[in-house]
């Protein structure tokens, strides 16, 4: 059928205003939705991860439930049930060789007793093999304040202790621990930064 044939059969005259009106309504709806879509109403964590892409670690509201003083093994084991409440974001696993950090930072959360003071955070880390002998720098922050920087090396797990000043303890009695990886490795130039590799976490404890 040719265009001429199409154009020779316009809609019935009495329908024309209704069709234009319907088209206007649909156009208005679509314009309105476009405006709303371009102005999302989302929490700051959502905005940082999905929209601004300023972090590779989406802060999830895990409760940080933790038996104070217990050492958690982050290798795949019967202790897996202990991991879920403290694992916030930026991790893959656990598998046999630990919890793998993915992206440029990863987070843990530990709930601590309301009267806890003079705390020490212990983390056992090993760098991924492709990091080479120089290893991976890991900057550790607690409740938004930097408490130390360490270097994890491949193949040889190391334990690091971080003293947590009492001034960092908050009314929520939680330690929000962020591990940043300034030397994290992009495995392929086209990869997303959420896939960067750096370290594996083997164990952790707050005492």
């Amino acid at each position: 059928m040719s265009s001429a044939a199409v154009l020779s059969r316009p809609p019935r005259r009495r329908l024309i205003p209704w069709l234009y009106a319907a088209a206007c309504l649909v156009a208005l709806f679509e314009l309105g939705v476009t405006w709303l879509a371009l102005h999302p109403d989302v929490p700051p964590d959502y905005r940082a991860y999905y929209l601004d892409r300023s972090t590779t670690c989406l802060d999830e509201p895990v409760n940080g439930s933790y038996s104070f003083g217990t050492e958690i093994t982050f290798r795949s084991s019967p202790d897996d049930r202990l991991i879920a409440p403290v694992r916030v974001c930026g991790w893959e696993g656990p598998v046999g060789d630990g919890l793998h950090a993915v992206g440029e930072s990863a987070r843990l959360r530990f709930a601590v007793p309301y009267n806890a003071t003079h705390l020490t955070l212990m983390l056992e880390l090993v760098a991924v093999d492709m990091a080479g002998p120089q290893g991976q720098r890991v900057v550790v922050s607690v409740n938004g304040t930097r408490v130390g920087e360490v270097r994890a090396v491949p193949k040889t797990p190391r334990r690091f202790d971080f003293t947590i000043p009492d001034s960092l303890l908050t009314a929520s009695h939680r330690l929000d621990v962020e591990l940043s990886f300034p030397d994290a490795i992009l495995m392929d130039p086209q990869d997303s930064n959420t896939r960067k590799r750096s370290i594996k976490l083997l164990a952790g404890k707050v005492v």
Partner: peptide
Amino acid sequence: MAFLRWYMGDGLAFLHVQRAWA
């Protein structure tokens, strides 16, 4: 998109969530 904006705040969530799949 209208549903997503009403339901969870981001009408383009179907695009933005691709970040999670890296």
